[in-house]
Design a protein around this nucleic acid. Structure first.
Length: 725
DNA sequence: GGATCTACTTAGAAAGAGAAGG
DNA sequence: CCTTCTCTTTCTAAGTAGATCC
């Protein structure tokens, strides 16, 4: 598959041929263009660190550390001292209220003394001995081969397990493992493998686990994990986030990832580097093992790191989201986005003007900025060909944008996580013109912004405001949109319930802007059908009520006719079905109640009630059935003795409301079926907007933030009333 | 000045827990 | 009370972006 290519020689040294002559003619091209095609990125084969028996890696890491720029010693000391004093004063109070201590003048973060207990390693693999089949016959596998087979077996019913690339990659890696022990059978054909016995074993295990009570599940876990949950950071006790090292398994790459299904190795202590305070005790590795290294990088927040074997990327153990380091940087992120408010008008004015700049590079940059600002696209770093082919703004290719004159652009590409971005947008005519020109210049398969990189774009943005990058626009526009929508939708007179509806609507606007999706749940259709049935049932009730009114006072007929008409979706067939259903359900209800009662009586040593009793009870339903038949024949409904028009009307009003509410619920579910609100809430919307809104409108915060979110956003909970995003 | 490395945030899937419905 | 549906939490992949290397 051809990777994104930068400009080829076709465009080199030429002038932009304007698509329409009314456009500024002959825009000179930017100086020279790099001619080389993007070289295929070939990552050097990851050095296999075999550190178990020599000191090299450790020494190596130590050397590296010397290169880490030293934080000015004074600053460092100052902070340490300040925080230590505070801790001594009142440890509990100081623990989480870092935001009241004020920030450092230069806004930088300094990480100080760090001690922690350690990183939890999983125990080695324990074979289960369940025999899978090959060519129809049960086979025995070495423990290692059994483990890898189990990884796959657990997934055979999932999309991953059915994905041919996943299967191929798994099979190749599994064969390598099989070869390691010559007692393993020769397995050469994936098609002949039957993993089902193992799969079923795991399903059973799952069931068994489910049966355990809450307490049983908790107890063992908490006991083992207890020592690993917290780290002491600058004297504060902070929660550790992902303290469990990632267990071995099959790499579950998203989208068309060429490496999906490959075996992810078990990580051993020798591969792990710890980052902690110079004076902190070094936690003990597994018996018989040693750590890959111990470092003291004060300006990093990670506690431990290791290199993962699939893509050669570094994985980290960080503090939890509730920690001060994470909270601090979260707050800084939103403060930066708020600072953009002061500059955004100028920036917008500039890029609009530069949309027809003579310099190609500038014009591309302006166009990209427009897209990032208006559509909240991601920056779009370039990717290698050993990853899924996904793009962002700067890496958009020819085929990702189509032109619909006069000025509509249709975007259709796979973004982060291979989530489809499909959007038809009417844009500024000059943006349309530009895309048309760029596309013509670069040709199919090539990147539209061939003179632009995320680096150059961010460098430019940085000239407007310190620390401004493409991603700040997403944060800014998300929070801004949320505040705007929330203000627009919230009615002071609304109930808490309705206010929450508005809150979620505003949230959804943001999620749509950011294209946050979720897969439609398997039984969504079923669920909607159920709700629709419920609505119909209520309509049927309402229809009967109206009939009764007419029976009571035939003069009402005329005025009610129109409304009756509106219920045309209540077909006779459906009504009949519905009535039958009602009867069946009623009978079931009575029967199960009767049986349960009998079981109870028997267990208490009493005699069960005779079958006759049940028949007696069921007679009431027979009665109902008769009445329904009669109703159908005569078209008359048996009126209750105390029926009155007023009462019936009141019932109708109530039903109307319920129908409306249920309809809303259905609409809400349908609209939200593929939009995930959580991501924007967690990462893009300044939590202070929510905190203030709750306060102002008397909505309890726990209605909008779950426990974890409240903990994460603790820094944002107390805001001045006049604060605005 | 691009490629690579590193460190961090952002993302949806999957697992788990809790609430609602029968 | 048990099952089913829904919301929350956990997990780790996949981005962004700065620093460093060459």
């Amino acid at each position: 598959m051809p990777l994104a290519k930068r400009a080829n020689s076709k465009t080199n040294g030429k002038h932009i041929k304007s698509e329409d002559s009314s456009d500024d003619d002959n825009v000179p091209l930017a100086k020279k263009v790099k001619l080389e095609k993007k070289p295929t990125k070939k990552r050097p084969a990851p050095k296999v660190e075999n550190s178990s028996d020599d000191e090299k890696p450790l020494a190596k890491v130590r050397k590296d550390i010397k290169k880490v720029p030293k934080v000015k010693a004074e600053d460092e000391k100052k902070v340490v001292k300040k925080q230590t004093e505070k801790v001594e004063e009142d440890e509990a109070e100081a623990q989480y209220k870092w935001w009241e201590q004020g920030n450092d003048d230069d806004g930088s973060t300094k990480w100080n003394e760090l001690e922690h207990n350690g990183v939890l390693f999983p125990p080695a693999y324990e074979p289960h001995g369940i025999k899978m089949k090959y060519d129809g016959k049960p086979i025995s596998l070495s423990p290692e081969a059994e483990e890898v087979a189990s990884f796959f077996a657990a997934l055979i019913e999932t999309d991953h397990g059915k994905n041919p690339v996943f299967q191929k990659n798994f099979f190749a890696d599994w064969q390598e493992i099989l070869k390691k022990d010559d007692k393993n059978p020769k397995i050469t054909d994936f098609e002949k493998c039957d993993f089902r016995p193992m799969f079923e074993h795991f399903e059973l295990e799952k069931e068994r686990k489910k049966q355990l009570t809450k307490a049983e599940k908790q107890e063992e876990k908490t006991k083992v994990e207890e020592p690993y949950l917290y780290a002491i950071v600058d004297g504060r006790k902070e929660k550790v986030g992902n303290f469990r090292i990632e267990p071995p398994g099959l790499f579950r790459g998203r989208g068309d990832h060429p490496k999906t299904g490959r075996l992810k190795h078990r990580v051993m202590p020798e591969q792990v580097t710890l980052n902690l305070g110079e004076n902190a005790p070094i936690p003990k590795p597994l018996p018989g093992h040693k750590w890959g290294g111990v470092v003291h990088i004060h300006e990093a927040t990670w506690l431990a790191s290791w290199k993962e074997n699939i893509n050669g990327t570094i994985k980290y153990v960080f503090l939890a989201a509730t920690s001060s380091w994470k909270g601090q940087s979260d707050m800084q992120k939103f403060e930066k986005a708020r600072e953009l408010k002061k500059h955004v008008n100028r920036i917008r004015k500039d890029y609009r003007q530069q949309l027809n700049d003579k310099l190609m590079e500038t014009r591309q940059r302006a166009t990209a900025m427009y897209l990032i600002d208006v559509l909240a696209l991601r920056a779009g770093n370039e990717k290698g060909d050993d990853e899924a082919d996904t793009v962002g703004c700067c890496s958009l290719r020819y085929e990702h944008v189509t032109l619909e004159p006069p000025n509509t652009l249709v975007f259709d590409f796979l973004g982060k996580d291979s989530i489809r971005y499909h959007n038809s947008v009417t844009v500024d005519p000059q943006v349309f013109k530009n895309i048309k020109i760029f596309k013509k210049q670069v040709g199919p398969d090539n990147m539209i912004f061939d003179r632009l990189t995320t680096m150059s774009l961010n460098k430019h943005l940085g000239s407007y405001m310190k620390g401004l990058t493409a991603k700040v626009f997403r944060t800014y526009n998300a929070s801004h949109t949320f505040q705007e929508q929330l203000d627009k939708l919230t009615r002071e007179s609304d109930s808490v319930h309705d206010k929450l509806l508005s809150y979620n609507r505003a949230n959804r606007e943001v999620a749509i802007l950011c294209n946050h999706q979720r897969s439609v749940s398997k039984n969504h259709g079923q669920m909607i059908a159920k709700i629709e049935d419920k609505i119909r049932a209520m309509k049927y009730q309402r229809k009967r009520l109206r009939r009764q009114i007419i029976q009571l006072d035939p003069k009402m007929k005329k005025s009610k006719m129109e409304e009756m008409q509106a219920e045309s979706d209540l077909e006779d067939e459906w009504i009949e079905e519905h009535q039958k259903d009602l009867l069946v359900k009623e009978r079931e209800k009575i029967t199960t109640k009767f049986e349960k009662n009998n079981e109870k009586l028997v267990s208490e040593g009493q005699a069960a009630l005779p079958e006759k009793e049940l028949k007696e009870k069921l007679k009431a339903v027979d009665e109902m059935e008769k009445e329904m038949k009669k109703e159908k024949q005569t078209g008359k409904i048996e009126l209750k003795p105390n029926a009155s028009i007023d009462k019936l009307l009141a019932q109708i009003t109530k039903l109307d409301e319920r129908i409306k509410a249920t309809k809303n619920q259905a609409l809400d579910k349908e609209e939200g079926k593929e939009t995930a609100l959580s991501t924007s809430k967690l990462n893009y919307i300044d939590p202070r907007i929510s905190a203030l809104w709750c306060k102002k409108h008397n909505v309890p915060v726990e209605k909008v933030f779950s426990k974890t979110l409240r903990d994460k956003f603790q820094w944002a909970m107390e805001v001045d009333d006049d604060w605005k995003f």
